[in-house]
Each structure stands twice: as C-alpha cells, then as structure tokens.
Amino acid sequence: MRVLAETGSTNADLLAALAEGQRAMEGDWLLADRQVAGRGRQGRAWSDGAGNFMGSTVVSLGDGGPTAETLSFVAGLALYEAVLPFLPTPGTLTLKWPNDLLLEGAKLAGILLERSGETIVMGFGVNLAQAPELTDRPTIALSETGPAVPRDLFAERLAASLATELERWRSFGVELILRRWQAAAHPVGTPLTVSPPGEQEMRGYFAGLEPNGALRLRLADGTIRAIHAGDVMLIDGER
C-alpha cells in the first residue's frame, strides 16, 4: 500500500497513471491522509476527514469472466464484510443499491467505480473517525458506535476482504454474489424513492435484483420497473 499525505483524488491518480501507460496490479492500493477533490457517484463531492479511510485499487477484467457492471456488488460486499467485525451490533449495517453502506440508516461509506480500458478503478470512502455533513442524507462515523478503527488496520481488512470476494466472483459467478448482496441489504418490501437519470422521482418498494444486478422496483400499481442507474433513497431510513 502506498500512502499520500494529500492528493486530489486517489481514483483520479490511478486513472491518470493508467492513461500514461503505467501498469497497476491487483492488490496494490493507493491511500490518502487527505483527499481535497474526492468524488462520489454522479459527480458528487466526497469530503475527507482526518482518520477516515480514503483509498483506491484496481481490478483487471479477464476474457469470459462476469461483466464489469457486477463489480459494484463485489465492492459493496467486500466493504460490508470488512466493516462488520468492528460493530457491536452487526444487524444495524446494511447495503443500499448499488453499493452504499448504511449504519443505523445513515451513510457510513460510499464506493466509486471507474473504467480505463480493461481495468476498473475502485475507490472507497469510509467514515471511520468522523462523518461529513450532507444536506440530502444523514451520515455516521464508525467511531459513533465504538472506538475509532485505525485507518491502516482497516485498510488491511478491506484489501483482504476484496481479494476474497474477487476470487468468489471469478470462481462462482454473479448469482452467488447477488444472493449474498441481497441478504446484506435492506429487506424486500422496503419503501424507496428512485430518481433515474433524466426522469422524475418515482416511489415504490424494493423487489430484489434482476439477474444482471438491476434494482427491481415494485410500483403502486404492482408493475415492476428495472432500474439500471439512479439515486435511491430509503423513505423510512435514509432521506
């Protein structure tokens, strides 16, 4: 693991290195003590915080393997499994489609996946010590439920967890990953609001996942809408 005292974005650093022809290997991580231009999904800013985890790694896509889009669920499961041992009450940790991690209904962590050729850059931001204030949703830090977890210890756990989940993804395919992801997510029937790109917000109920990982949203009239992209909020949890 390579640690920078400060950078704009660890994802952007790795993408720039790949664009310059540098080789990045699976298992190599780039971490930052401070990240001044961190990004979340759909271009949102992701605030850093002293003692939090901010880091990125790469995954190589191989011929005949599962599709790149399903790596979102691999990353989410890896993060879920890495955080779980540090919680006094594991049942309060849930995944939200596609890969946000919620603790007691508040956002604990987020993941950003970006592609460069046949390489996926995975960026993780985890509120270990402190949580940024967001205007559109509650946030939480791991330190609010117990002792703060040292960043480097968490980095080792996450790296090991991701390596395990990638091996499962390649060996057993997507079906097992999606089944395990759904078991760690909010229950079927959870009321949601969804804002697909370019469309108005819609309300419905979580109805599981499509075989390709799309979210199944059951609308008020009983029809099922497959959501491939968009903002998802828990009506009775995250707002």
Score class of each variant (00 low, 15 high):
residue 102 L to P: 05
residue 94 T to N: 15
residue 59 V to T: 09
residue 23 R to P: 10
residue 89 T to G: 02
residue 146 G to K: 13
residue 220 A to K: 10
residue 24 A to R: 15
residue 138 P to L: 00
residue 123 G to S: 05
residue 44 R to P: 06
residue 228 H to G: 08
residue 109 A to P: 11
residue 136 D to T: 12
residue 152 D to I: 00
residue 227 I to R: 07
residue 124 F to I: 00
residue 21 G to M: 07
residue 135 T to Q: 13
residue 122 M to L: 15
residue 1 M to S: 13
residue 75 A to E: 06
residue 163 A to I: 03
residue 3 V to C: 08
residue 236 D to A: 14
residue 189 G to I: 08
residue 113 L to C: 05
residue 5 A to S: 12
residue 182 Q to V: 03
residue 8 G to R: 14
residue 9 S to F: 10
residue 191 P to N: 06
residue 170 R to F: 00
residue 77 L to W: 04
residue 187 P to L: 11
residue 156 E to R: 14
residue 140 I to R: 11
residue 238 E to S: 15
residue 197 P to K: 02
residue 179 R to F: 00
residue 65 G to Y: 00
residue 89 T to E: 14
residue 197 P to E: 01
residue 125 G to V: 03
residue 206 F to P: 07
residue 191 P to Y: 03
residue 200 Q to N: 15
residue 58 V to E: 05
residue 101 L to G: 09
residue 38 G to R: 12
residue 178 L to I: 01
residue 28 D to W: 13
residue 161 S to N: 08
residue 161 S to M: 04
residue 125 G to W: 04
residue 131 A to C: 01
residue 173 G to W: 02
residue 113 L to G: 05
residue 197 P to A: 03
residue 72 S to D: 02
residue 55 G to V: 03
residue 126 V to W: 07
residue 76 G to S: 08
residue 90 P to Y: 02
residue 132 P to W: 06
residue 173 G to V: 04
residue 197 P to S: 05
residue 98 P to E: 01
residue 112 L to H: 11
residue 184 A to F: 04
residue 91 G to M: 10
residue 118 E to R: 13
residue 211 P to Y: 02
residue 135 T to M: 07
residue 161 S to H: 09
residue 133 E to L: 10
residue 17 A to K: 15
residue 230 G to T: 02
